[in-house]
Design a protein around this nucleic acid. Sequence first.
DNA 1: CCTTGTTTTTCATTCAGTGAAAAGGGAACA
DNA 2: TGTTCCCTTTTCACTGAATGAAAAACAAGG
Lengths: 272, 272
Amino acid sequence: MAGGSREAGRSVTDKVLSVLTAFESERRPLALTEIAAIAGIPVSTAHRLVGELTEWQLISRTSNGRYQLGLRIWELAQNVGRQLRDTAKPFVQDVFSLSRETSHIAIRDGNEVLYIERVYDSRRVPQSAGTGGRLPMHTTAVGKVLLAYEEPWVRTAYLGLDLQRATDRTITGARELAAELDLTRARGYATTHGEQSPGTCSIAVPVFHTGRIGAALGIVVPAERSETMTKHLPVLKAVSSRLEAATARIPLETLIKAHHGDPPKDTESAGS
Amino acid sequence: MAGGSREAGRSVTDKVLSVLTAFESERRPLALTEIAAIAGIPVSTAHRLVGELTEWQLISRTSNGRYQLGLRIWELAQNVGRQLRDTAKPFVQDVFSLSRETSHIAIRDGNEVLYIERVYDSRRVPQSAGTGGRLPMHTTAVGKVLLAYEEPWVRTAYLGLDLQRATDRTITGARELAAELDLTRARGYATTHGEQSPGTCSIAVPVFHTGRIGAALGIVVPAERSETMTKHLPVLKAVSSRLEAATARIPLETLIKAHHGDPPKDTESAGS
DNA sequence: CCTTGTTTTTCATTCAGTGAAAAGGGAACA
DNA sequence: TGTTCCCTTTTCACTGAATGAAAAACAAGG
């Protein structure tokens, strides 16, 4: 065929999705050639696929001929975990208006923290991660909370990872982190002090659902105000329990379905 | 072939996207059979496509075996118009915290209003449309604003449509609506009184960008408080101009690329 | 005018995708 | 336990939809 050797095992679907997800790596509008390169497909194929995606409004074209994700995909995605996000949103706002500090709620997805909703001031500079952003668990207060209250095997698995350093204050030792998690459970909240980015501290409390850890609610404050952080604990605690009450009725099914991994089979137990 | 007569002209991409968008019509998790029916493809094909989409995390599976859109597509979609949404968000919050009424910002997409961001109280009942929702232009205050300040041909085109009735107070006469739009421009804001849903009123002001209408900022209030609506005008106006200042630097390109339609060619002008 | 970098179109080739049909669950009921 | 009903999953022979190298068209500099 003119098409010579097809790359084996690459389905059309695969290629389409490669094109779509190409926009994850680069946030700016992409040229066709770039898309093709990132997705790892020939330009002509990319051309056709991008054309179809554009017809479906999943991709839109900027006036200079470049491509970016389209409105339609945003609309579509609004339905993902809507019930949880819509419910949680005003509570995060409450935290913000009572603390006047950047407030957020996050869940665990795999070994990362995923920010579901964030409320911030119009003057405040954007943080390391906005809504939809991810950060490691050991560098954030919400992450520590989500890990501390998680089932033992999750915690153990995470402690076994190579903990990446984000700043010079980042906790990278498994033992140290374990102690930090114990402390978190003991006092019911977690903090960070410049562990994710220098100059910012954070504090977070757990949000439970059906007896298990579901999310973490927290705030971020500039280092110079770190002293005042614990002052906001009552607010966090109170809002958290109101949120727990509000989400209690929501079936787990319709909450955000995250990657929680699978527990080890472990037929022969540790003590066997 | 075993597959008999393929439905002609249906590309794989088409089918994949039909599957994805199937989740727009029904908000609940869908069974494979349902997806196949909605997307208009055979079950076995749906099965394969859904399988691939699931591998890519664009679709996730609930414990009862049904499918729903996955976290990944939400994350992906966070990049759409992010700069505009992130910028606008705290301003909408400002409106909310100053008015204590459900506040929102919307843009025009085609002949509809698209809500970009909405801030509401934890007690307030969900409105007709949440973030990412659409409503007609003539039944909402934001819609009236977006239409009133739009280029003449857009307005003319909309007035030519068959204006659907939402409540018994909905304006459905072209002449009436034209007068309403004139009024809107004259006084610099628009209102509705039970025109979209009985019992709720709304008020909105324009947000300009590079001299053109870009968005509309508004609030929704229950009918019994409708008298107090105009009391919030100063807030809306003030926040709007602060938002205009904040968005002025953002290049139009990276704002949300909506369907604005094409002006009529109209080589022979009306008066020719 | 040429060069360099794109985007777009073309087209002979063939294998990835196809979908009817059959088999495999599993829940509800008798 | 068997039967019914509905949904999911697997199978498989067949072929036209998808393919991608290559060439053409376009755009922006130099």
